[in-house]
Design a binder for these strands. Sequence first.
DNA 1: AAATATTCCAACCGCCCACTC
DNA 2: TGAGTGGGCGGTTGGAATATT
Length: 368
Amino acid sequence: MGRAPCCDKANVKKGPWSPEEDVKLKAYIEQYGTGGNWIALPQKIGLKRCGKSCRLRWLNYLRPNIKHGGFSEEEDNIICSLYISIGSRWSIIAAQLPGRTDNDIKNYWNTKLKKKLLGRRKQSNNIHRFSSSDQDPNDHQPASDDNHFSPGLSNAALERLQLHMQLQGLQNPFSFYNNPALWPKNIHPLQEKMIQSMQAAASGSNGNPNLLMQPLLPNPQPANEQSVDDLYDPKSFKAKGLEVLDNSLDGISPSDGSVPFGTGDNLMDSTIVPKGNGNNGDVQAVSNFQGELDEFLNNKTAGYPQEEQMADQVLYCFKDMNGSTSKDSLIWWPTEFDAKSASSSSWDSTSVLQSNGVFQDYELGYPM
DNA sequence: AAATATTCCAACCGCCCACTC
DNA sequence: TGAGTGGGCGGTTGGAATATT
């Protein structure tokens, strides 16, 4: 079934908002609120705008206490940590950063942070990992400007690959991340530390869950039975021995050792803490990871050309794990994986968890 | 100084979900 | 129960701003 458009597209203004429109919208909402109906709102005000457009303008720009630009290192860390943990759930990530909007964070990630974290491959002439000796001699497909590593492996896929490896590894005791024997010989020292931090955080020396990673680390539950939606289901949290506190009621701050999880009228308005004691060794493990991440983000990794190293290492890992870097070992990613999310090109932990079959296929190919 | 390339971000699009009737 | 609807979300785009050649 199709659906009726939310407004008359022909009679609706598009494009940048004028100061007059901003004033009208802001004044009305501040005085009367949205009335619980964005679609009807523009008519009430006399704006020739789509209701959704009004909502977006308010939420991303006109709403009080909105911050633009000037992301701090701490905010960088939070964004990176959460992205690694939960994927592109921008609204959830934004909920951890007061004054930031999901759109802002999404833009910031796509334009700056991602490049910092994954490396600016486009500017790199570092092709040596996939030099002619590494490539399938039958493969004559030219590498695109966007991706000189391997035909068929887009930058987006590469990013997903790297993060997927992290997530997958944390869930599977036999997988790459939990098996140092599988690590490449030349692994970046920071990567090793990150892995170890994640492992420590995931295992939790005292049995308490890691607050950032734990939602993706259900105990013996098989990965393919874990939906990311569970992560935000209060029942799921309780089942894992976590408590859900309502921030909107008690104003708990992150400084108490708990991790706030959003704003809104559901779990997003809550803080998730381990039952009993919110300040434990796992928090320390997280902070260790945060420290490494911070160091990485701020180019303090002495002696390493930080740009493109991470992405490079991921592919190098594949080479080591598989014995060789064949086109086939890489090509599945943008094809089979993407096909799973063809309806929306989004990627998040859900996709990761649901696509574990793809990854398992790969892992099974490794001679244990 | 002009042309071209790249970066950045506000806004749009379309899908999904929850709710109502 | 299922169709209709609005809200919310993530991905993408267009164009302005900036950098580079």
